[in-house]
Nucleic acid binder design. Sequence first.
DNA 1: CTGAAAGCGCTTACAG
DNA 2: CTGAAAGCGCTTACAG
Lengths: 341, 341
Amino acid sequence: MVSIKEVARVAGVSTATVSRYINDPKQVKQPTREKVQQAIAETNYAPNSLARNFRRGKTGVILVALPSIGTPFFADVMKGISTIAKDMHYSILIKETQLNQLTYDEYTNLVLSKQADGIILLSAIIPFATGGRQRPSSQRQAPIILSCENVTPELGRYPSVRIDNTSAAAEATDYLIKLGHSRIAFVFGLQSSTLTLDRERGYRKAMKAAKLAVADGWVTEGGLTLDGARKATRLLLSHAERPTAIFCANDEMAMAAIHEIKSANLQIPRDISIIGFDDIRYAELLDPPLTTISQPAAEIGERTMLRLSQAIDGRDIGVEPEIVPHKLVIRRSTASPAKRQ
Amino acid sequence: MVSIKEVARVAGVSTATVSRYINDPKQVKQPTREKVQQAIAETNYAPNSLARNFRRGKTGVILVALPSIGTPFFADVMKGISTIAKDMHYSILIKETQLNQLTYDEYTNLVLSKQADGIILLSAIIPFATGGRQRPSSQRQAPIILSCENVTPELGRYPSVRIDNTSAAAEATDYLIKLGHSRIAFVFGLQSSTLTLDRERGYRKAMKAAKLAVADGWVTEGGLTLDGARKATRLLLSHAERPTAIFCANDEMAMAAIHEIKSANLQIPRDISIIGFDDIRYAELLDPPLTTISQPAAEIGERTMLRLSQAIDGRDIGVEPEIVPHKLVIRRSTASPAKRQ
DNA sequence: CTGAAAGCGCTTACAG
DNA sequence: CTGAAAGCGCTTACAG
C-alpha cells in the first residue's frame, strides 16, 4: 500500500509538501506542484482516510438512526439529509434500530468513541427511557438531534426539527368532524413512538373539543406495520359501534386499512372514510387516493442536517424544536358519512 | 478527551495492559483487571475508534451503493445485509447514487482510501461503462460484489448474488401467454439498469418462442419511478393496438400502471392484466392484489454480505454469479383476456 | 502476565 | 514556499 512517504520520495519533496498539495494545492508553488502531481499519478496514491480522520479527530460521518430503512416517509427525509450532508462532505452511516432499544448511553458512546461526528435520530425515542442517565455535566453534550420525532420532557430536552404532530392530527380529525363524522377511530403506531402518541393526543383533543365520545376500542394499535394495521382495522370493523371514519397515524397503515375495508366489501369513502398521515408517494395512487397530512419531508431532513452541523461546529443550537409547517391534503378517501338506518 | 494513557495512569498500569483488557480481558490477570475496570469507569473512558481503525488498517465499514433509499425491494435486501453485517461487526455506510454515475475508479478509490473495507453494489452498473479502466494488475481487486444486479461481460466480471432475471421474466411472460394473451406490453426500468434489461430480454425471448409479435411502442421506458410508469402506461393505453396485458419490470411501476388503468375506467384484470416483479410488501395490498415474480430479497442480502466478507478476508470468491431461486406468485391482477368485438 | 517502545500515515506549528 | 519533527491514540512484537 503506497503511503505519502513513498510519494514524497518519488517526487523528491517532503511529506509535508505532499500533504499540502493534497489538501490545498495553492499552498504549493507551481513547479513543485507538478512534481507531486506526477508522483501521485505514478504511484497510484490514494490518501489513507483512516489516518487522516484519526489525525484530524473527525470521522466525517453522521449517524442516522431510524427504525427501518424502506419506510417511504423516512426515505424522503433521508433525501433531505443526504443533500446537505453531501454539500458539507459528511457521509451518512445508517443504523437500523428495528426493535432494539438503544440507550442514550449507547448513542453518545458512538460519538465519544468517534464513530460519528453527530447523530440524527429519526427513531422512536424509547431508548432514552431505559438508560436516560445524563452525562457528567463536565462533558459537552454529544451532538444529537431529533428529526420528525419528539421526546417527552422528563427524558431530557434535545434539539429537533419536526412538524407539530398534535396540531396536525387535530386538524385531520377536525376535518372529519366537519364532514359530519362522529364515530371516528384512531389507529396509532406504537406506544414507544412519541410521534404517533402526539398524533393520538391531537385526535383526542379534537374529539373532546367537539364533545364527541371515543368509544372503547376505537383507539387501537397498528404497530406501524402493514400486518398490524390490517389486524387493527379488522378489529374496528367488527366493533359493535363501527366507526364511520378511521384516522391512521401514518399512510402505510392507511394503505393496509383500505385493503381490509375493501376486503370486507365496504366502500371508501361511502361506508368508511380514511385519513392518513405523511403523504408518502404512494398516497395519491391508492384507490381511492388518500386524504392525508403532508409533511415537508425533504425540508425536515435538510433543516435537521444543517442544525446538526452547527452543533458539531460547536455552536449552541439550543433545544427549542424547530417546527415546520404541515398541510392537510384532501383527496378522495374522505367524504360525509352516508345516511344510514 | 480521555485517552488510554490517562486510564493507564489512573490504574497504575501500562497502556498495553489497558489495551489488552479492552480487547481481550482474559489476557489480564484478575487483580489487574479490576484496577483497569475501575479506572475506566472513573474516567468515563471510551476507546477512540478512529485510532483503533487506523492502527488496525480496517474501517469495519461496508459501503452499500444503491440508487435510492426507500425502494421497498432494496430495503428488504438491506435487511439481509444488515443482519449478517451486524453478526460480523461491520457497519453499513449507505451511498445513494441517485442519477450520478460513479465510475469504477471512484468506487475502488473508496476502498483504496480505506473508507470502506468492501463494497456492495445494489445500484445500476452503468458506472463501469464510463470509467472501466482496470486497476493495474499488481493491485488486488477491491472487494466488491453486486447484489441483484448484473453486469455485461464486456465491462468486466464481478461476483454477484442474484436471481436469474431473464428466466424469471420469461416465466412471467409465459404465464400471460398461457392465459391466452398475445398483445403483451413490457415497461422496462432504465436503459442503464442491466437488471431491467435482463428482464426485457426474458420477455422478448418468451414472446419470440411463442411466435408473438412485439408491436412498435409496446416496450416502453418506465424510468423506475411512479411518474415515469404512469406516463408509460398512458402511452400504452392510447396505442392503436392496445395491449391486453402489461408486464412491468418492477412492482412500483406496476402500482403506477394499475392506477392509470383504473383512471382510464378500465378494469383489471378484465380489460388488462398486470404483472409485476419483486413482490414488495405492498403487492398483496393492491387492488387487485398483484401477480408478480417474488425474489428472496433477504436471502440475497445475506448471501451477498457473506460472500463479501470472505473476499475481504482474502479468500477467493471467484466471479461466478450465485443464482438464488425466484418464484411466480399468482394473485388477482392477471386473467385470461376478455373476448372482445 | 506485564511493560517499554516502535510505529501505523497523516497534519501542522515552527523555523528558515 | 518548503522541510524536519512532533504527535494524534491506539496495538503488538519483543523482552523479561
